[in-house]
């Protein structure tokens, strides 16, 4: 990894942080509705893993799928940030044409196959994406990001078993932030180390620090290469922490301020910025300038686009339920 890549990654993480912060403001202004789950604190995971995969869409790039905390995963996969923001605003120009919202960002042109609200549902969908790639004989892989809480769903066990038996090229990324909404992992789950659960499925697995992007990059490179080369699943666990509440209305009464402060000391952006400064690659002034540039982009391009975009038309309410242009040979009408 060269110096400019390092600076790029730092910029990306700052961008994701500011993007999420700005959605928080827009939510407070009631420009964004529904549930809004922010990725603040976990940026090094998606940024690092996906930087080691093939991004950008098309028949060479890998597929990405995740849960409802999906804005950053979508943007890193290649979904335009302004379209993601427009989706949060419920606009026709949004990634999902305003039909999905925060939890359901889709951008098939970036091979980003969705955000899903049902905890654990992306496990089998990801294995299916991988099965499709394997069947077509490409060397694409599927990458599935989910939380620690999702591992207590039946889909976790069912999918791990099938992914192993059928040797599907899928990378499962467990973002272990130790909480499922307000329930600590120790109160819901027999083992805290999630990667240990993989021995039941004979799947290679490992656990790493998810707050240090260099660790994430190194571990992810091995994992991605393993999946692609062997056409087999891999389970990679990153220990991380979400700095904000689960969703917007979360008083966080289930964790202590001390615990939060301990983790905030390990802010992935500060850790990486500190390393780059120490190496003489960047100065505080550079970072300030970077932040200013990002804020300008968010305000003058991304937010502007979302604000100015049209709402979906009410006449189009019934579009996209079924194929809007079906082939009459398969659909009918039936000749009596």
């Amino acid at each position: 990894m060269n110096d400019s890549d390092k600076k790029r990654l730092l910029r990306e993480m700052i961008f994701y942080r500011r993007f999420e912060d700005r959605t928080f403001e827009a939510y407070m202004e009631r420009k964004i509705g529904g549930f809004l789950h922010l990725y603040t604190g976990q940026e090094a995971v998606a940024t690092g893993v996906l930087d080691m995969a093939r991004m950008g869409g098309g028949d060479k790039a890998d597929y990405v799928i995740t849960g409802y905390r999906d804005h950053v995963h979508a943007i890193k996969s290649g979904a335009p940030a302004r379209e993601v923001m427009a989706e949060l605003y419920g606009k026709e120009t949004g990634s999902s044409r305003g039909r999905g919202g925060s939890m359901h960002i889709f951008d098939p042109t970036a091979n980003f196959m969705g955000g899903y609200a049902l905890v654990g549902q992306p496990f089998p969908l990801a294995a299916g994406l991988a099965m499709g790639c394997k069947h077509k004989g490409t060397d694409q892989i599927a990458i599935c990001f989910l939380g620690d809480g999702a591992n207590n769903q039946g889909t976790f066990h069912e999918t791990m078993n099938m992914a192993s038996v059928w040797e599907l090229p899928v990378l499962f990324v467990c973002e272990n932030n130790m909480y499922a909404i307000g329930t600590h992992i120790d109160r819901s789950t027999a083992v805290r180390d999630q990667y240990k659960r993989m021995c039941a499925y004979d799947i290679e697995a490992s656990q790493h620090d998810g707050m240090d992007i260099e660790t994430v990059l190194e571990a992810s490179k091995k994992a991605v290469d393993y999946v692609r080369k062997n056409s087999k699943p891999y389970f990679i666990e990153f220990m991380t922490y979400r700095f904000r509440g689960h969703s917007m209305s979360d008083a966080k009464g289930y964790r202590t301020r001390e615990e939060e402060q301990e983790w905030e000391k390990r802010d992935p952006i500060n850790i990486f910025a500190g390393k780059l400064k120490k190496a003489g690659l960047i100065t505080d002034a550079d970072i300030k300038a970077m932040e200013k540039e990002i804020d300008d982009e968010i305000e003058n391009d991304i937010i502007k686009f979302a604000e100015e975009s049209p709402e979906p038309k009410v006449e189009d309410l019934g579009k996209y339920v079924l194929d809007d242009n079906p082939d009459p040979r398969w659909i009918g009408p039936l000749q009596q």
């Binding site: 196959m113 089998p124 294995a127 790639c133 599927a142 039946g154 099938m162």
Partner: peptide, 15 residues
Amino acid sequence: NSYTGIGIGASMVGM
């Protein structure tokens, strides 16, 4: 539930 989900995922990429 999950083999149906795997079928669905595969269908999303053209199967």
